[in-house]
Design a protein around this nucleic acid. Structure first.
Lengths: 141, 141
DNA sequence: ATAAATGCAAAGCATTTGCAGTAAA
DNA sequence: TTTACTGCAAATGCTTTGCATTTAT
């Protein structure tokens, strides 16, 4: 019988380290391929046969909300995920879908008249085009 | 029906100027709201009661392929469309979804070592954050 | 003990497609 | 007449959700 009223509010602050989540984090760690949820599901399923899409999406959304990973919108078809949350930019091949990091020398500043009104949370530069391999293939055909 | 713009089609196919397409083009002309397909559907349906989503999507895809409009991926939930195909960038409020044009002074160049391999078709800078109105509302609550 | 995560299947949206009828050229 | 477009509805693809069960803490 609780004589003490020690209700803590379950405000969802704890992150449980389940094997599924650890497997997803392990797959993402150092991964520069900018995988989609499906890529991650397929990769992690090889180890965890019971892995479900729901778990992958739940985990990715939780991690993104926590700022542990970044959700990219550069691919018009599906979300892509990036474990590198440092400031950098991307280049995507519109033919094969490959996404490459751009880590050097690109900085952008919002013009002052907008910067006054708008609270900037993040910025991102994206390049679209054809990668070396796909350029070759196109010439060939 | 004559329009002021001549579309050169190429590809051996002709672009038929149907009333539905003209209505979509009229709605987009000078529009800086970066509407989604659904926004366009709802707006144009008021005039054309029989308008279908298929026609909206078909038309938008045709126009985007022809380079008459631009498809934006800045919104993670749905595609947004921009009749301004000149080089400019965008800022989006993550709270209300509003997208604003940035036309001044931002230029980006791909680092040389990437520029050699990669054929750049386009580049785009995007800022995410809170607009003035949503900033206020957040403070208030 | 208990709050939270899992897995499944079903649902939810945005977008695309097949096809028969219709209209622009 | 010929070819392309429209509209409907069904289908697709990505993502989310409800819920009963299991698990980390």
């Amino acid at each position: 019988m609780p004589t003490k009223h020690d209700h803590k509010k379950g405000m969802g602050t704890s992150f449980k380290r389940t094997p599924q989540r650890l497997a997803i984090l392990a797959y993402l760690d150092g991964n520069t391929s900018h995988p989609s949820a499906d890529d991650i599901y397929r990769a992690v399923s090889k180890k965890y046969h019971s892995m479900s899409f729901a778990t992958v999406y739940n985990t990715l959304n939780t991690l993104a909300k926590a700022g542990t990973i970044r959700e990219l919108t550069i691919d018009p078809v599906r979300k892509r995920f990036d474990p590198d949350v440092s400031r950098h930019h991307h280049l995507m091949c519109v033919h094969c879908g490959k996404i490459v990091d751009i880590t050097e020398g690109l900085t952008v500043d919002l013009p002052k008249e907008l910067a006054q009104d708008f609270e900037v949370l993040g910025s991102h530069i994206e390049f679209h085009g054809h990668c070396a391999q796909c350029k070759k293939k196109r010439k060939a055909s």
